[in-house]
Design a protein around this nucleic acid. Structure first.
Lengths: 189, 189
DNA sequence: AGGAGCACTTGATCCAAATCAAGAAATTAA
DNA sequence: TTAATTTCTTGATTTGGATCAAGTGCTCCT
């Protein structure tokens, strides 16, 4: 049941078996229904979530009620609002279940408690970086085609799971442009 | 002599006087000549630098030998290559003195030693975030005018110190566009 | 099953910024 | 101080992606 979580830790940290099972004992299993919010605007992010099953979208709402997709998450990924968590101030973004989800929750009290026991748990801080990785990878590329190619290379499941409009927003291009890029690439291959 | 460094710590951390002076005792004062590199491509970033005097530019070189300016730093700022430092792998960017510089260097061994003495030195980790702040602030804005206004508001000294082409590259626009934006704004004010 | 909204595609038009180009001004080097 | 180089400005042209618009096909209701 918890081997996916263990595997994730092994990917970015070096915990002993005891340490890992101590962390895991602090996690709570939670379920969210499609469209249910893990974090609402104005709430302070007080936990890390690890997606066991499901998919999650994080977005910001503009004055004219458009939603800008900030991040898309699939299974075996860590989810949190970096800004809100590190500052412990209210979030300006929403984290929402895109489909029914099962997640592990590791809350800030548990984290502090662990760090109190042993400094090696400071490695948990690396989880903070996880959600930022994709953004770096895709959004800063100069052309829509490069962005789409990058996401195809590094995270093709994203494209299968989420509708084009969310992918487009995440890549900071319009759905029309993404549609054309995708069309062009499928022909040239 | 070291009160600038003290002031910087007070800005983002809460160290006791003893702790602060312990950190400071671990720093080395170093000088770099104009165009001298603090970090070269391929080297691993193994220290934080605090600029006492001077200005520093960080850039990446593309295949066709263009330099893309990634960050610009003035006095009283922390400089490092985040990616290389946190992963302890070779940097793909260059950090170079834009003019003669005097800096404090706090190397990774000193940092580890401090953290070994007291967990409160984990607050030093916040230095890692410092260089990323400006990038968030300017580069993600949608129009050249907004980028230029933002930099005018938050860091006008940058514009005075660095030539237009470096500012333009940092903002990811062309020098021509920046010249026109600046010209337009100076007329409308 | 039928209908109301979504999701996606495709085409036409527009526009902001990039590119290309050339000259003026400032800085650096000899 | 002059020559050489770099920096900056200004104009003309091009272009990639946004926007506008219309039509088709899904999906999810009840």
């Amino acid at each position: 049941m918890k081997e996916k979580l263990l595997k994730s830790f092994q990917g970015f940290a070096s915990f002993s078996e005891q340490e890992a099972s101590l962390i895991i004992s602090k996690t709570k299993l939670r379920n969210f229904r499609k469209k249910e919010n893990l974090l609402k605007i104005g709430e302070t992010c007080s936990a890390f979530y690890f997606i066991l099953k499901g998919a999650i979208r994080q977005y910001r709402t503009t004055e004219d009620l458009d939603e800008i997709t900030l991040n898309l998450y699939l299974e075996n990924n860590w989810v949190l609002e970096h800004q809100s968590f590190t500052s412990q101030k209210p979030s300006t973004t929403t984290i929402q279940a895109f489909e029914d989800c099962t997640v592990y929750e590791l809350d800030i009290h548990a984290i502090h408690e662990l760090i109190g026991r042993s400094p090696s748990f400071f490695q948990l801080g690396k989880i903070l970086e996880q959600p930022l990785l994709g953004i770096e990878l895709y959004q800063n590329l100069p052309t829509p085609e490069q962005k789409y190619r990058a996401i195809l290379t590094h995270n093709p499941q994203l494209i299968q799971k989420f509708p084009l409009k969310h992918i487009a927003s995440y890549l900071k291009i319009t759905p029309e442009t993404l549609s054309r890029v995708r069309n062009k690439l499928s022909k040239s291959s």
